[in-house]
Every structure is written in structure tokens, then in C-alpha cells.
């Protein structure tokens, strides 16, 4: 784990995931916030894989079952996620159709594929640099919750369109399954520890390393420095 690079673990320290305090590796509880300290997230790969496999399996009924059931003058129409997207295209709302398609199909599938890939990259070969894969991880972590849009849309339509006999919208079982997919893959992303990818990096890329690096500091509100300017202070 320690490969000569300037990491907390190579200095015998562990970082509390909740309050960011650096503590000695043999501590069990963080002295500052009281949470359990692990040098790397506990059983990160196993937990992440178990969660993402469950999410992938749940994604199948989420797409096959109806997400919304509309009753109009006694006539019942069941629509799946894809059906809803196609209906929006028929209505001419291409932009909204794209939003739903992205949120419900592209984002969850991308997210699952990326998490599988990241787990594999820790175990096996490494395509791309650790920095690129960390960016991928951050992206996936950020976009995950946007998949919930379709579930919220269904909930809003159910609450709003409620004239029994005339026009009524009911939630379908896929709404619950899909919410499960989103929640499980959010927990999966949270369980993955990107530091595992960096632990595999070859030792010290730069020679003459100072004992502890200074971070990149962006001077955001200082008028005398150009915005976005980056430099190593000191």
C-alpha cells in the first residue's frame, strides 16, 4: 500500500471518512467525531459489486413492468419507461423525451457499466490513468441521483391527475423497482473507494518530493489575482 508516494497511508495515517481527521492507523474510533476509522473503506470491492449486481438485476423488472397506469374513461393504458419516452416523442416534446431517456436509460446504464469497470480495474489491468478513472468515478457519483426524475414525475402525475371515472393515473410496480435501482447504485458508488486505484500507481512520479505537498489553491474572490489562476503557494 505504501509505495513511497506522499500518501496518508504511507505515513502510517488513516483519514476519517466522515470528518477528514488524520488519525493513527491503529485507531478504531475517530477521536474527533466518533465514527469507525478504516484505512480504506471496509470490504469496498465486495460491497460495491454486491450492490451493483442487485441494482442491475432490479433494472430488468424496472424496464419490463409498467411504471405508470392511466385510466381514461374506463380504458386502461399501461406504460413502461421506454413507452413513456416514445409517447413524449409522439407528442412532439423531443427535449423532454431526451431528458427522461437520459435520466432513466443512459445514466443508470452508464453508471452501472462504469462501476463494474472501476471494480475490474482495481483487480486486473488498468486502462487509462488513475486520474482519468477518478474523474470517471466523480462523474458517476454526481449524476447518479438525477435518475430519480422519472419516479418523481410519476408521483406528481399520480397526485395531480385523480378524477376517478374520467382520468386517473396510478403508479406501476416499475416505479418502486426503479427507485430501488437508483438507491442501490448510489450506495454502490459510495462504497467504492477510489484510493484503491491510486494504491496501484507506480511509486513517486516526481523526484525531489517535498515532505508534504501544498495543494493547488484557487483564489476565488481575490480581485488582484486573475480568476482560475493556479499555482503552488509557497
Amino acid at each position: 500500500m505504501s509505495n513511497g508516494f506522499n500518501t496518508a497511508s504511507s505515513r502510517g495515517l488513516a483519514c476519517c471518512h466522515l470528518c477528514l481527521k488524520l488519525v493513527r492507523q491503529d485507531s478504531h474510533l475517530c477521536p474527533r467525531c466518533g465514527t469507525a476509522v478504516h484505512q480504506r473503506k471496509a470490504n469496498s470491492l465486495e460491497r460495491t459489486l454486491a450492490l451493483i449486481v442487485t441494482a442491475s438485476l432490479l433494472y430488468i423488472p424496472a424496464n419490463l413492468l409498467p411504471i405508470m397506469i392511466t385510466t381514461s374513461l374506463g380504458e386502461v393504458t399501461e406504460s413502461t419507461i421506454i413507452g413513456g419516452v416514445l409517447l413524449l416523442v409522439d407528442m412532439g416534446s423531443i427535449a423532454i423525451a431526451l431528458v427522461i431517456f437520459f435520466a432513466s436509460v443512459v445514466i443508470p446504464l452508464t453508471k452501472m457499466a462504469v462501476i463494474y469497470y472501476l471494480c475490474w480495474s482495481v483487480k486486473r489491468g488498468r486502462l487509462g490513468t488513475a486520474r482519468q478513472r477518478t474523474l470517471l468515478y466523480r462523474m458517476v457519483e454526481f449524476i447518479g441521483k438525477w435518475s430519480m426524475i422519472d419516479v418523481f414525475v410519476v408521483a406528481i402525475l399520480v397526485a395531480l391527475i385523480n378524477w376517478s371515472g374520467l382520468l386517473m393515473v396510478r403508479p406501476g410496480p416499475a416505479a418502486l423497482a426503479f427507485a430501488g435501482v437508483v438507491i442501490l447504485s448510489m450506495i454502490a458508488a459510495e462504497s467504492f473507494d477510489p484510493r484503491l486505484m491510486w494504491d496501484l500507481e507506480p511509486p513517486a512520479e516526481q523526484p525531489n518530493k517535498k515532505p508534504v505537498e501544498r495543494p493547488v489553491v484557487k483564489f476565488v474572490v481575490k480581485p488582484d489575482v486573475k480568476p482560475g489562476q493556479e499555482f503552488e503557494s509557497e
Partner: peptide, 14 residues
């Protein structure tokens, strides 16, 4: 004084 990066574990003097 110090923080470790949550993504790559590098230590920084902040």
C-alpha cells in the same frame, strides 16, 4: 494543518 485527499490519499498542508 493537514488534509488527505479523499480520492487518492495524498497529504496536503492547508
Amino acid at each position: 494543518g493537514y488534509l488527505a485527499c479523499q480520492s487518492c490519499d495524498s497529504m496536503f498542508d492547508v
